[in-house]
Design a protein around this nucleic acid. Structure first.
Lengths: 336, 336
DNA sequence: ATGAAAGCGCTAACAA
DNA sequence: TTGTTAGCGCTTTCAT
């Protein structure tokens, strides 16, 4: 069933059918109805390829993320897909893994499908050197690139993110102000936002005149889905590092691992150990006490990102960077 | 940059360029090289639409799932995307939500993008009546439909699933055999696999001569990401239902909620209460004691599904139904 | 308001 | 081995 078949059956030209299909207002209501009836009767759907050839668009957005099974990324992908759907776009999902080398390939691949735009989900797409980010510059000449939870200044690249630095700085201060002068920081990612958070922690300690900062920072390199191993890691930290009565984790997963460490070692939370997580995920309520965590406004971010993208695609001038503030959600693992 | 530009610059016809592009062996190596050089020099990528029009395929598979932020579904989507990628296919993701009415629309939408096949992730796409499943029949005439964790007999519909009935039957028997004669069952979904699991539980109880079965089954209708509310729900169950010393949950999320309920009420797990979860997700290690859970071989399933799909698309005869057995992974919430 | 016709960029017979 | 050419199904001027 093609546009020709429909036009024949309706007794009009293919141009008229095309107009009806594309909602042109230059069609007499009566002929419009006539055509619509035939279309519905035969359940006709236009061929997307042929259409795309004319339109140069399939109303599709490419979404790249490292790992859609990561709690945070999965939620982000979910929100994005919903928002895009609501705006008439579909989502081409591509999970790249954490291997930077392959990202270029994936980007080109997805680009060859003629997507209207590309969303890079998560800050691990941004490297520290100009060279590492060359692939983004290349692609940005062809379609707009949207960064979620990361930032990169370049034409046709738009960023939506949480001010992780300030948010983490303030979260750390909350803990310091509550009288805990010896917090440690644990993290597992040195992505763009990972670095911001780490700096927020460091600077808060500096401001409060705490020395020995580097010894208070610990990187977990194990499997991020294994709470046991995180707890084991904390055992190690407790053994080697200076004593601590507070832990700030770069991710809820790590924080839950810390809760587990405390339970295993009969350390009372929050009395003897305060814990702050990050992302305010579903994990915050899985433990007792429940996890105090930083909400980075993911839903707000994804909404803003898609609005920006839609604006850009329709030729409007849109903000290059949208920054939101995170918010500490107080629950049971902290005294303050 | 089109195939014409390339052909001109290379001094050959577009047909030759097309042959090079499609890896035809009927091209002299020297001309092949000549063309390739030009292609690389100008970084030319063929237009996917035009190509799709000729090829009638864009090597893309549509993936439909209710909610890609659900722990289980997210993992499934992740594995599927990886497998498809490895086989040269891309994934068009579409999250339909749990509203059955919209599924038909989504299916048609995704079909209009000329996907080569469609994967329905999760058993909530299959209804109980013929009528509910009509939309699948309709679409199956156009492209193969792959069901993950569900089953439906129809031409061009292929199923890959875990034998949830037997698996749950056996898990329940394990608990009964350990001396717990009064288990309760909690669930939150009445999907295809949800019903299978429930029946497995029921029949195990029947076999062991346990009466009062219906009072041992409880449906949780709240938010599946809120462990608190699940624990609240369990408080209610404990109040209203006959006493129990074992809980079998249809999902790890629910089971973790039960662990939480036990902790809050100072019920010793597993001594006074045994708990079994389902899916063997990352949540199994988030609590103390760790969760005994059923592994339903998701990765194996997704692998098999994609292999079947690839086979079907290349015209091979493939099994209509691939069934795997789940396996109880024993951890700390059970004595056996 | 409607139709005729020229592409869009590619694939795949068919010729040479 | 290579080139010529006719589609593929649609959008979009340009006429009418």
């Amino acid at each position: 069933m093609t546009i020709y078949d429909i036009s024949k059956k309706a007794g009009v030209s293919i141009a008229t059918v095309s107009r009806v299909l594309n909602g042109s207002d230059k069609v007499r209501p009566s002929t419009k109805k006539k055509v619509m009836d035939i279309i519905e009767k035969y359940d006709y759907t236009p061929n997307a390829f042929a259409r795309g050839m004319g339109l140069h668009s399939l109303q599709t957005i490419g979404i790249l993320c490292a790992d859609s099974s990561d709690l945070f990324l999965a939620k982000a992908v979910y929100y994005l897909e919903q928002e895009l759907q609501a705006n008439g776009y579909e989502s081409l999902l591509c999970c790249t893994g954490y291997n930077l080398e392959l990202k270029q390939n994936y980007l080109n691949l997805i680009l060859s499908k003629k997507v209207d735009g590309i969303i890079l989900v998560g800050s691990n797409f941004i490297g520290t050197t100009e060279d590492e980010n060359q692939y983004i510059k290349d692609v940005s000449t062809q379609v707009p690139i949207m960064l979620l939870n990361a930032s990169f200044d370049y034409p046709n690249v738009y960023s939506t993110l949480c001010d992780d630095y300030t948010t983490m700085f303030e979260a750390t201060e909350s803990m310091l102000d509550s009288g805990i002068a010896d917090p440690v920081y644990i993290y597992n990612s040195i992505s763009y936002s990972g670095r911001k958070k780490l700096n927020g922690f460091k600077d808060a300690l500096k401001k409060h005149g705490i020395s020995d900062i580097e010894n208070r920072i610990h990187k977990y390199d194990g499997d991020s889905q294994q709470f046991n191993e995180i707890a084991d890691f904390m055992d190690q930290v407790a053994k080697e590092a200076p004593p601590f009565h507070g832990v700030i984790a770069a991710d809820d997963v790590l924080a839950v691992g810390v809760v587990k460490y405390a339970q295993r070692n009969h350390i009372s939370v929050p009395d003897d150990l305060s814990i702050i997580g990050y992302n305010n995920s579903m994990l915050t309520t899985c433990c007792i006490p429940e996890l105090t965590s930083v909400d980075n406004r993911l839903e707000t971010q994804t909404h803003q990102l898609v609005q920006t993208l839609v604006g850009v695609l329709s030729g409007e001038e849109m903000p290059k960077k949208s920054i939101f503030s995170g918010k500490l959600i107080k629950r049971g693992t902290t005294l303050f």
